[in-house]
Design a protein around this nucleic acid. Structure first.
Lengths: 214, 214
DNA sequence: CGAAAAGTTGCGTGGCGCGCATATTTTTGC
DNA sequence: GCAAAAATATGCGCGCCACGCAACTTTTCG
């Protein structure tokens, strides 16, 4: 499994990726420690040992740097998804690759929850997070389309990816509100399985006096 | 059920709403005319006849002002949805209220398509648009939960709203890419109906040579 | 009417994003 | 190896933005 076309990546490319990852990590860590309002580009650059101007050669905003891990994570999920056996039902493949990836990475600690919640209140960051999720969704859609083969409708892949991202977002936000109740992964899987079966219920269950169907 | 607690809105409130709407409209129009890069807060404020400082009393960024119409539109969709007969299947109710709303508003003209596409390339605006859609999704989820009654699972409503927003976004982006092929509403409805039936297909149609876990 | 509540405005500040010119580093061709 | 070339890092400067604060103006309400 060699992702690089060239057996060894040039020094240039290695340094670039290292710098980018260092900036993203530092941005995320500082944001978690001191909050978004106290996060300055200058601080990130200083800590990495690079000029503030250089930061903007890698990211067009500090919010983008903080959210960079989302896209990177999705790259791993994509790889895991494409490595799944071809016969596996698509929903299982999706859930299993998400599970694999979750097992491979550090889970957020309970004491960080309220910090994350605070960060989500920041309007700029929230928008950028959604943007990162949109990138991730596109990536997933491409992977799903590739997995399904040429004949499949690419719009179906897009829709599928959208549903997956919705489930992910909702599970995450639910976990953020009350992380005691349910943990992230089970809820995520449950939502996906329900979506897979279609969502024909919720049809005005006649709670009102007008009564009705079913 | 009267929306206003007071039969006539005070002068204060009327002025505030007028100012907000004027700012949003002007922001959107100027952005369409000259592009996001050329859009300055000062211009918007001047055209409305208000101080630049005041602009930021209504919106925390120009992008938010440009995207304000999305949330306002969703308020109408919600009202239309809640006005639907209780017995109507939920997917039909959703589609029909979207259709009603579309019929009620100006459709974007063909010559604006490329301008909109350019605007979407702006990273800040795209994030804010997703943020507005997230607000809209939450609003829709609340409406769906209300319509379904007390017994329904609120997470199902959230998921449903997420699917609807995904369909909307995908239909919009598709229309944006090649607006000749399909128009927005039919594609939107089609995606929703497919989602309603569940999406069990796409399951690795074995196009490849059993592929490889390589 | 008169006081209080709410909204508007001007000003100042810190920060950001980025274009541009220059210096530095890595790659490439020989 | 070495020098030219290509890519990257940095310093500088500019225009803009978000927002706190302290007046000032308008609306509301008793």
């Amino acid at each position: 499994m060699s992702p690089e076309p060239a057996p060894v990546m040039g020094l240039r490319e290695r340094k670039k990726r290292a710098a980018r990852k260092a900036l993203a990590n530092t941005a995320l860590r500082l944001a978690m420690e001191h909050g978004m309002d106290q996060l300055r580009v200058e601080d990130i650059a200083n800590e990495v040992g690079v000029s503030p101007r250089t930061f903007n050669n890698y990211f067009s905003s500090k919010e983008q740097a903080v959210c960079a891990f989302i896209v990177e994570r999705q790259e791993h999920v994509r790889d895991a998804l494409l490595a799944r056996p071809a016969g596996e039902p698509i929903w299982d493949a999706i859930i299993n690759s998400a599970v694999d990836q979750s097992a491979r990475e550090d889970q957020p600690r309970r004491e960080d929850v309220h910090r994350v919640r605070d960060m989500m209140h920041n309007h700029g960051l929230f928008g950028e997070m959604l943007r990162a999720h949109a990138d991730a969704e596109r990536m997933l859609a491409d992977a799903l389309a590739e997995r399904a083969g040429e004949g499949a409708n690419p719009l179906h892949a897009r829709m599928l990816a959208g549903i997956v991202q919705s489930a992910s977002r909702i599970a995450f936000q639910t976990w953020l509100q009350n992380h005691d109740d349910r943990s992230f992964l089970p809820l995520f899987a449950e939502l996906l399985r329900e979506a897979a079966a279609g969502m024909p219920d919720l049809t005005a269950t006649a709670a009102r006096t007008t009564a009705a169907a079913s």
